[in-house]
């Protein structure tokens, strides 16, 4: 009792109710969550790396420098390099519209931005097949002009863009809503134009939230499987992204190679999380 009172005095910010729990409950809950983390996160991750290195470093290096693997890596990076900036731009514009202006259909826009979260990626992929597939609305036209959409880079891009539309906008909307429009109003009243207001007032306020959204968006673009799988056509060395290539390798009994590429993706994910944490830390210690 006395101890818990003391500590609640020391850290006012900490949630006081949790400290009133009996010690045994706290220990049990901590153990449980640590155990959960270990079984569902640490162990699988360890298995990936162990399986990848099972046949030695030579095999590992060979499997990620093999030409189909390289082209899968290249394609994944290319898609990320195009899709992330586009969705960043769109996310900023959408969040800016929604939070700084009041207009009809504002709620509708928020709902539409959320749609990719609600729709299964497979269905998203199928929609693109229905619209741009050879039997779709515009498919034959694109094919005849030698500009295929589905089963080629544009289709993979479209599917990736669709799936990751909400990430940046969703990150920015609550942030910008909380900040309100006062600073922008002040800026405009002092004679700045729209772009100046955005560049000098809004952007500095949202930059950390924006970066956070960009990182999440990037992680999803690289890892997306379902939607891309539907529109890719699975041509190896041409339209297989990294997740698809992993599946191909696994199905060919090349387990070590599959895990090697998977470990590379995991490394990218871990890197993403580290950057994310640095950003969070910087936000807190600004």
């Amino acid at each position: 009792m006395v101890i818990s009172l003391d500590s609640s005095k020391q850290s006012v910010k900490a949630d006081p109710t949790s400290l009133k729990e009996p010690r045994i409950v706290r220990i049990a809950l901590t153990t449980l969550s640590l155990l959960f983390l270990f079984i569902f996160l640490v162990m699988p991750l360890a298995v990936i790396f162990i399986s990848a290195l099972r046949k030695g470093l030579d095999v590992y290096v060979a499997s990620i420098t093999e030409s189909d693997a390289l082209s899968a890596i290249q394609l994944t990076l290319l898609v990320a390099v195009i899709a992330v900036p586009l969705n960043t731009l769109f996310g900023i514009i959408a969040a800016w519209c929604i939070t700084k202006f009041n207009f009809k259909g504002r709620n509708l826009l928020i709902t539409i931005i959320d749609l990719p979260f609600a729709v299964s990626p497979v269905i998203a992929g199928l929609v693109f097949i229905l619209v741009f597939g050879a039997q779709g609305l515009f498919g034959e036209w694109f094919l005849n002009h030698d500009f295929p959409i589905v089963f080629a880079l544009p289709g993979i891009l479209l599917a990736s863009l669709f799936v990751t539309v909400p990430f940046v906008a969703r990150e920015l909307i609550p942030l910008m809503q909380a900040q309100g429009t006062q600073e922008e109003e002040a800026s405009v009243s002092l004679g700045a134009n729209g772009f100046q207001t955005f560049w000098h007032v809004t952007l500095p306020n949202i930059k950390w939230g924006l970066l956070y959204g960009v990182i999440l968006c990037n992680a999803r673009v690289m890892g997306e499987f379902g939607a891309v799988s539907v529109v890719s056509g699975h041509v190896r060395g041409l339209t297989n992204t990294m997740p698809l290539h992993i599946e191909v390798l696994y199905n060919e009994y090349q387990f070590t190679a599959a895990f090697a590429v998977a470990s590379l993706m995991s490394l990218l994910a871990i890197l993403t999380i580290i950057i994310k944490n640095i950003i969070e830390w910087k936000t807190a210690h600004r």
Binding site: Q135, V150, F151
Partner: peptide, 20 residues
Amino acid sequence: IQQSHGGSGKQGRAVIDGLP
């Protein structure tokens, strides 16, 4: 020669949908 593999029915479908 580039290869694409998958379930036979699904692959046929993809060719119909424009896989070249």
